[in-house]
Simulated assay, not measured.
Amino acid sequence: MLTKKQLDLLEFIHKRVQRDGVPPSFDEMKEALDLRSKSGIHRLITALEERGFIRRLAHRARAIEIVKLPESLGGDANGFVPRVIEGGAPDPEPALSPSLPVEPVHALELPVMGRIAAGVPIEAINQVSHHVAVPGSMLAGNGNHFALEVRGDSMIDAGINDGDVVVIRETQTADNGDIVVALVEDQEATLKRFFRRTGQVELVAANPAYETRVLPADKVKVQGRLVGLIRTY
């Protein structure tokens, strides 16, 4: 489900792409939604991307692609995308009628396995620092899950900021484009987009300030795939 602001922004981007062939600038989005700063637009863009409605392409200006539309805009909003818990004030929601049942939220405790680099790789993670509670609905599919605290800004254009906690499903495989925890030469752990080429692996940052790392396939091991993110303010 999208908030009204998220839906308004998605509709505005969709109409501008249909009309002009390119998405609007952040300044145009800010003016259209009557927001005071571009940081609010950044949060909305991040939320739309994490819910699978848009995709931002790295190393290109105004590179926003409409992936799908909600039913209210003539599309089909079905499909899994990572959920994000934000600690700031949420957009106002309609008040619930006292007669409506309230579904309980089931939370699970996950181990936080130290810190993961979203920047220059750091030493491999291998111990539990503390635990964090996450909604059970955030955990995708079967298998074990763990959490990591992000350090660095190389994934900022994917909506992953320094200090965020990422929720990871343990797996040794990944599809091209997945955001994964990659273990490099059994020594360095990093959070990057994963692409497998012939005999090689590319670890791609979501920040043009960082170069893509190209490594022999046998030097990189996938430790898990991103399924969620927790942010506090």
Results as ranks from 00 to 15, higher is better:
residue 5 K to D: 13
residue 7 L to R: 09
residue 7 L to H: 11
residue 9 L to I: 03
residue 11 E to G: 04
residue 13 I to D: 02
residue 17 V to E: 04
residue 19 R to C: 01
residue 19 R to I: 03
residue 19 R to D: 13
residue 20 D to E: 15
residue 23 P to E: 04
residue 24 P to W: 02
residue 25 S to M: 07
residue 25 S to W: 01
residue 31 E to N: 10
residue 32 A to Q: 03
residue 36 R to C: 01
residue 36 R to T: 06
residue 41 I to G: 08
residue 42 H to C: 05
residue 42 H to L: 12
residue 43 R to S: 10
residue 43 R to A: 10
residue 45 I to G: 05
residue 50 E to F: 15
residue 50 E to G: 04
residue 52 G to P: 08
residue 52 G to F: 01
residue 54 I to P: 04
residue 55 R to G: 02
residue 60 R to C: 08
residue 61 A to W: 05
residue 64 I to H: 00
residue 67 V to I: 12
residue 67 V to Q: 09
residue 68 K to Q: 08
residue 69 L to K: 06
residue 70 P to H: 08
residue 73 L to D: 07
residue 81 V to W: 11
residue 85 I to G: 11
residue 85 I to Y: 09
residue 87 G to M: 12
residue 89 A to W: 12
residue 91 D to Q: 11
residue 92 P to E: 11
residue 93 E to D: 09
residue 95 A to Q: 10
residue 95 A to R: 06
residue 97 S to L: 12
residue 101 P to H: 09
residue 102 V to C: 04
residue 108 L to V: 14
residue 108 L to W: 01
residue 111 P to Q: 02
residue 113 M to W: 14
residue 116 I to C: 11
residue 116 I to A: 06
residue 121 P to C: 00
residue 122 I to D: 03
residue 123 E to V: 05
residue 126 N to T: 01
residue 129 S to L: 12
residue 129 S to K: 13
residue 129 S to G: 01
residue 131 H to C: 06
residue 133 A to M: 07
residue 133 A to F: 06
residue 137 S to R: 08
residue 138 M to G: 03
residue 138 M to V: 05
residue 138 M to H: 01
residue 139 L to C: 10
residue 141 G to A: 10
residue 141 G to P: 02
residue 143 G to K: 08
residue 145 H to F: 15
residue 146 F to V: 00
residue 146 F to E: 02
residue 147 A to K: 05
residue 147 A to T: 00
residue 148 L to V: 12
residue 152 G to H: 01
residue 153 D to N: 14
residue 154 S to A: 15
residue 161 N to H: 11
residue 162 D to T: 05
residue 162 D to Y: 06
residue 163 G to V: 03
residue 165 V to A: 02
residue 167 V to T: 09
residue 167 V to L: 12
residue 170 E to W: 00
residue 170 E to Y: 07
residue 173 T to G: 05
residue 175 D to W: 04
residue 176 N to L: 07
residue 179 I to V: 15
residue 184 V to E: 05
residue 184 V to C: 03
residue 185 E to W: 00
residue 185 E to R: 15
residue 185 E to G: 09
residue 188 E to F: 15
residue 190 T to R: 06
residue 192 K to Q: 09
residue 193 R to K: 14
residue 193 R to F: 12
residue 193 R to D: 06
residue 197 R to E: 14
residue 197 R to C: 08
residue 200 Q to V: 13
residue 201 V to N: 03
residue 201 V to M: 07
residue 204 V to K: 11
residue 213 R to D: 10
residue 213 R to F: 07
residue 214 V to L: 15
residue 219 K to S: 15
residue 221 K to Q: 13
residue 226 L to C: 01
residue 230 I to E: 06
residue 231 R to S: 13
residue 231 R to D: 05
residue 232 T to F: 12
residue 233 Y to C: 07
